[in-house]
Measured scan of single mutants.
Amino acid sequence: PEDEKKAKEALKRANGDEDKAKEILRKLGVDPDRAEELLRRLR
């Protein structure tokens, strides 16, 4: 869904750096736990 698209985009923008991607997602208003879960799934 929408969050998943955001997560993929964030990872791309962060050049695969998960911590940076998490930060980006947090700024986009995605719940930190949700962000973590999404990134884990994309790994």
Rank of each mutant, 00 (worst) to 15 (best):
K5S: 10
A10E: 02
I24F: 09
R41F: 10
R41Q: 14
G29W: 01
P1F: 14
E18Y: 15
D17F: 04
E37V: 07
R41N: 13
A21Y: 04
L42E: 04
D19F: 11
D31T: 10
L11W: 11
D31F: 05
D19R: 13
A10V: 04
K5H: 12
R41L: 14
E23D: 10
L25C: 00
V30I: 14
A10M: 03
K8D: 04
L28Q: 13
D17A: 05
L11Y: 06
A14V: 06
N15D: 09
R34V: 14
L39C: 02
D3H: 05
E4A: 09
D31G: 10
P32R: 09
A35T: 04
R34M: 11
K27D: 13
L11V: 04
L28V: 05
R13W: 14
P32W: 09
K22T: 05
E4R: 10
R26K: 12
R13F: 12
G16N: 06
K5Q: 14
E4M: 15
D3N: 05
R26W: 11
D3A: 08
A14I: 02
K5R: 14
L42V: 07
L11A: 02
D31Q: 09
A35E: 01
K20T: 09
A35I: 15
K22S: 05
I24E: 08
R13H: 11
K12C: 07
A10T: 02
R43E: 06
P32N: 11
K20P: 00
A21R: 01
R40I: 11
G16I: 01
E23P: 00
E4T: 10
E2P: 08
G16S: 03
E23K: 07
N15E: 08
R43Q: 10
R13M: 15
L38N: 01
D31H: 12
P1N: 15
A35Y: 05
L25D: 00
K5M: 14
R40Y: 07
E37A: 10
L39M: 08
E23A: 09
I24H: 04
K20E: 10
K22N: 05
K12H: 11
D19Q: 14
E2L: 10
D31A: 13
R13I: 14
K12I: 13
E4S: 07
E9H: 09
L42N: 04
L39R: 00
K5Y: 12
D3P: 04
L38Q: 03
L38R: 00
I24Y: 10
V30M: 15
D31E: 10
E2N: 11
E18S: 09
L38F: 04
D19K: 14
K22L: 14
E37L: 09
A35R: 02
L11P: 00
I24S: 03
D31P: 15
N15M: 10
L28A: 10
R40D: 09
D3E: 12
I24L: 09
V30L: 11
G16D: 04
R40G: 08
A7H: 02
G29V: 02
A7T: 05
D17E: 04
R43M: 11
R40V: 09
E36F: 05
V30P: 00
A14Y: 04
K8P: 01
E23M: 08
R43K: 11
K27A: 15
N15A: 09
A7P: 01
D19W: 10
R26N: 09
R34T: 12
E23R: 07
R43I: 12
A21H: 00
R26A: 13
D19A: 15
K27Q: 15
E36C: 05
P1I: 13
K6A: 14
L28S: 07
N15S: 07
E18M: 15
L11K: 02
D3R: 03
R41H: 11
K5N: 11
L38I: 10
G16A: 03
E4W: 15
E18H: 15
K6P: 03
K27I: 12
E2K: 07
L25M: 06
R26Y: 13
R34L: 13
K27T: 13
A21Q: 02
D33M: 12
E18N: 07
D17K: 04
E23L: 08
G29I: 03
L25V: 01
G16H: 05
R13P: 01
K12G: 06
E36N: 07
A10G: 01
K5V: 13
R40M: 10
G29N: 04
K27L: 15
R34S: 08
R26S: 11
D31L: 10
L28I: 06
E9M: 11
D33W: 12
P32F: 08
A21N: 00
G29L: 04
I24P: 00
L39P: 00
L42C: 05
L38M: 08
G29H: 03
G29E: 02
D3F: 09
N15H: 12
E37S: 06
A21D: 00
A7W: 04
N15V: 04
R40S: 10
K22D: 02
G29A: 03
A7I: 08
E18D: 06
I24N: 03
D19H: 12
K12P: 00
I24K: 02
K6L: 15
R34W: 13
D3K: 03
R13C: 08
E9S: 07
D3W: 15
L39H: 00
L38P: 00
L39Q: 00
N15I: 03
D33I: 13
G16L: 03
E4V: 13
R40W: 07
V30N: 01
A35M: 06
P1D: 15
K27C: 07
A7N: 01
R34D: 07
E9P: 00
E37P: 02
N15G: 13
E9L: 12
L28Y: 08
K5P: 06
A14T: 06
K8Y: 13
A10Q: 02
K20F: 08
G16P: 01
E37H: 06
A14P: 01
L25S: 00
L25P: 00
K20Y: 09
E9Q: 10
A7L: 07
A35G: 04
R34N: 06
E2I: 09
K22Q: 05
P1Q: 14
